[in-house]
């Protein structure tokens, strides 16, 4: 009896999440084919810009790794986190009308968003890897699992931060003004285009408090077989991401019930 009940509930969630992903695919990428391309073009523009700057400075490698592959790894990882938080910040208000259908829950919306954003990043990551290989970049993938681990944490952290910001936004509009500069600061402090290994100790220790530094380094450890980083922690960013995610869920529950009451 309970088994059947759970089976049915699970199938309903699955059906709703699948329907949401298909629908969000439409709205996430817009109506034109350009929408899909933009998901690819945006990180590519960043990578090309950094590579160009490095070439002008006469450099071809970062921390002993091919510059374009180094940037690709960091920037795709960063965009996954950034897009995830940006989408979650507005996801519930943008989809409020969906809650009119009682079988759609905020949790379904959250899961659908996370699946869509991480799948998009994974596709972009694979395509850009093939482009790099075609350009004769030396890439020797070390540990595929580590890349997946890093991407999963970036998704989780992005979702958590987005939900927390969304909840704070409910109390004060200042979030929207502050979030953009703070996230820009975080971008530079996350090392998408440098490694903390080369930094002086005090600065490095400060930056290592930022979970995104660890997440991007873990992605690189997985992507480059030869790469070493003695300072990275495998557990710290996971704890941080899970904490942010749970806090975000709670904050969301709290504000949702306020709106409903």
């Amino acid at each position: 009896m309970t088994d059947r009940f759970f089976g049915r509930a699970l199938r309903l969630h699955f059906r709703v999440v699948a329907a949401l992903v298909l629908r969000e695919t439409r709205t996430r990428f817009g109506r034109s084919q350009m929408g899909y391309l933009w998901a690819l073009i945006e990180p590519t523009l960043f990578i090309v810009t950094f590579v160009a700057i490095y070439r002008v400075a006469g450099r071809h490698s970062v921390s002993g790794l091919p510059a374009e592959a180094f940037f690709m790894c960091g920037i795709v990882g960063w965009f996954l986190f950034y897009n995830m938080q940006a989408k979650m910040m507005v996801a519930f208000s943008a989809n409020r009308n969906l809650l009119a259908y009682p079988q759609v829950t905020t949790f379904d919306i959250l899961i659908a968003r996370m699946l869509l954003e991480s799948a998009t990043s994974a596709v972009v990551f694979v395509i850009l890897t093939f482009v790099l290989l075609l350009l004769n970049t030396q890439i020797e993938i070390g540990n595929f699992i580590l890349i997946v681990y890093a991407f999963a944490m970036a998704t989780l952290l992005g979702a958590g931060v987005g939900m927390i910001l969304c909840a704070i936004k409910y109390y004060s509009d200042i979030v929207e003004k502050l979030a953009t500069p703070l996230l820009r600061l975080m971008y530079f402090a996350s090392g998408p285009f440098y490694s903390v290994v080369v930094l002086p100790k005090p600065l490095r220790e400060l930056l290592l408090l930022n979970p995104m530094v660890h997440i991007l380094e873990i992605a690189r450890l997985g992507y480059f077989r030869e790469y070493r980083d003695p300072f990275v922690s495998m557990i710290y960013p996971l704890g941080f991401a899970l904490g942010a995610f749970l806090l975000g869920l709670m904050a969301d529950r709290l504000t949702q019930s306020k709106i409903a009451a």
């Binding site: 059906r15 709703v16 699948a18 329907a19 298909l22 259908y101 079988q103």
Partner: peptide, 9 residues
Amino acid sequence: LRFISRIYG
């Protein structure tokens, strides 16, 4: 319609 049909099965 497709979306709503999907969530209602």
